[in-house]
């Protein structure tokens, strides 16, 4: 199972964490990987904490349980830090990605016991600037792909252009904005 990358997303209902996990599964699938993308379902309400998951592997995936020892944790909404133990079970050598506009050391201070890799991306600003709305999942997807190393930058951008062209067939004007958002996110992610 060591060749399986396990990812856990923490967001709030309505922020697109589930969609992001499905998009990531899509991207990895195009790389010939075996994928799982699934949210944890319950009585969903806008703003309530939700969890979504990905398994990505080069061998068939059989386990159908939630993920307890992720390689990567993505915090879509930083107000969940504290109320939710987002780093629970995060593997030694794993990575934590936080959507935040705060200074890296300030975010780092939120995780006193955590010494592993921490990446900060201001996904809200990137999406507001390029898409015109707070759609953090598109820039975060870019950050996760970069941190996970499942594919190279140009291959990823090319791939996303294809899926955006399909997704936004009826409103091509938003395609370029989304493309700029994933490119900027790829560049702007910082290590804390």
């Amino acid at each position: 199972m060591s060749n399986t990358i396990e990812i856990r997303w923490h967001g709030r209902g309505g922020q697109g964490a589930k969609t992001a996990s499905l998009l990531l599964a899509d991207v990895a699938f195009t790389q010939g990987m075996y994928v799982q993308g699934f949210p944890e379902y319950g009585p969903e309400r806008m703003g309530a904490p939700i969890t979504a998951y990905n398994r990505l592997s080069h061998t068939p995936l059989r386990i159908h349980s939630n993920i307890y020892t992720p390689d990567i944790v993505v915090v879509v909404d930083e107000t969940l830090i504290g109320p939710v133990d987002v780093t629970a079970g995060l593997k030694e050598g794993g990575a934590l990605i936080v959507n935040s506009r705060r200074a890296p050391e300030e975010v780092r201070a939120e995780f006193p016991g955590y010494t592993g890799r921490l990446y900060i991306i201001d996904a809200k600003s990137v999406s507001l600037r390029n898409i015109g709305r707070n759609m953090p999942n598109t820039p975060l997807l870019s950050t996760v792909v970069k941190v996970s190393g499942i594919m190279e930058a140009e291959a990823f951008f090319e791939n996303m252009r294809g899926s955006f062209a399909h997704k936004f067939a009826s409103k091509p004007e938003v395609l370029e904005g989304n493309m700029k958002a994933i490119r900027e996110a790829w560049e702007e992610v910082v290590t804390a």
């Binding site: 499905l22 599964a25 899509d26 699938f29 075996y34 994928v35 799982q36 993308g37 699934f38 949210p39 379902y41 068939p60 995936l61 159908h64």
Partner: peptide
């Protein structure tokens, strides 16, 4: 099939 576990999980 199992609700959500397979019905709502995207897989190959």
């Amino acid at each position: 099939q199992d609700g959500f576990i397979t019905s709502h999980a995207v897989e190959n």
